[in-house]
Simulated scan of single mutants.
Amino acid sequence: MSLRVEQLSAGYGSIGVLRDISFTVEKGEVLGVLGRNGMGKTTLIRALAGTIAPSQGSIFLEGEEISKLPDYQRARRGITTVVQGRGMFPKLTVRENLEMGRIAGGRAKRNRRDEVLSYFPRLAERMNQLAGTMSGGEQQMLAIGRGLMTDPTVMLLDEPSDGIMPTLVRQIAETLAKINRAEGMTIIIVEQNVPMVFSMADRCIILEKGRIVAGGSKDEIAQSNLMKEYLAI
């Protein structure tokens, strides 16, 4: 078992966002988290990553409770997060951004740069380019690559298609699926781009007002009335 969440509630100060969230993601599984804006998807990613503290409930990674660990300690246990907006160091080069990922992980036993560049050949062409001068799609590739430099077992992705051309969205989704197959990495992807999620995910959950209102295989979710009601497709 890779990641287990039990009765998790979280928010910001007195404002509750997530309410009694429970799910399990097995090792090597891809879980898609769907829902409209403001339903708690990003808050879930932040709670799992450790950038906000849960008000109640527990998070377990490989059987170890990590609910009270800060984000950097979770990173050192194998959780990497690709935030919405990509979170680049715009004035650093591609090479330097990747190196920052390796340092931030604090646990990598090996330098994974060659593997990252094999997944994203476009980055190899831009190693000395400032990250802030690249396109949105290229920056997203760099953000994912930087996450891989930590040698993670769990990757959390928050809206990776945001602001990216459709052709690059498909390319990034295909690469993430390739990484998942090759490395057995557990992936939790928060997205409003339903086709992207369905191209990758083994299972999906739908969040509505901070609660899980549906869950199952992507085929079950695609055929559900909730999908039409909550996501208007």
Rank of each mutant, 00 (worst) to 15 (best):
V197M: 11
A182Q: 15
Q7I: 12
S199E: 09
N225Q: 15
R203T: 09
L226C: 02
K218L: 02
D158R: 10
S199G: 08
E229R: 13
A104E: 04
V197R: 11
L156H: 01
F198E: 01
E115S: 09
A222I: 00
M200I: 07
S55Y: 11
M134N: 02
S14H: 14
G13L: 10
Y230S: 02
P121N: 07
R170C: 06
F60E: 03
A10H: 07
K91H: 12
A201L: 04
K178V: 11
Y119E: 07
L92H: 04
E96M: 08
C204H: 13
D219R: 15
G145N: 05
E62Y: 14
M1C: 08
E6G: 09
G13A: 11
G78W: 12
R113K: 15
P166L: 02
R36S: 14
M227E: 00
G50C: 03
I52C: 01
M134V: 04
I172G: 04
L157C: 03
T93M: 11
I144G: 01
M227Y: 05
L34V: 03
E99H: 11
A201N: 04
A47N: 04
P152Y: 08
S22I: 09
M127F: 07
K209Y: 08
S199N: 10
R4A: 06
S67H: 05
F23M: 03
K209H: 11
L48M: 04
V94F: 09
I206N: 05
G63M: 05
L142I: 08
F89T: 02
E6L: 15
E159C: 02
Q7F: 13
L176D: 09
L130S: 07
V116A: 01
I212Y: 07
Y12D: 12
Y12V: 10
N37S: 05
G163R: 13
K91W: 10
G40M: 10
G105A: 00
V33I: 13
A177M: 14
G215V: 00
F60Y: 15
L130P: 02
D162V: 15
L31D: 02
S9W: 12
D162Y: 13
L130F: 14
D202I: 07
G101N: 00
Q171H: 15
S14M: 14
M227R: 09
E183S: 13
V194A: 05
T93A: 07
M100S: 09
A143K: 08
K109R: 15
T175G: 02
L231T: 01
G184V: 13
N180R: 09
G63K: 11
K178D: 14
G32P: 00
L61D: 03
I15S: 12
Y119I: 10
P160A: 01
G13I: 13
V25M: 02
R86C: 07
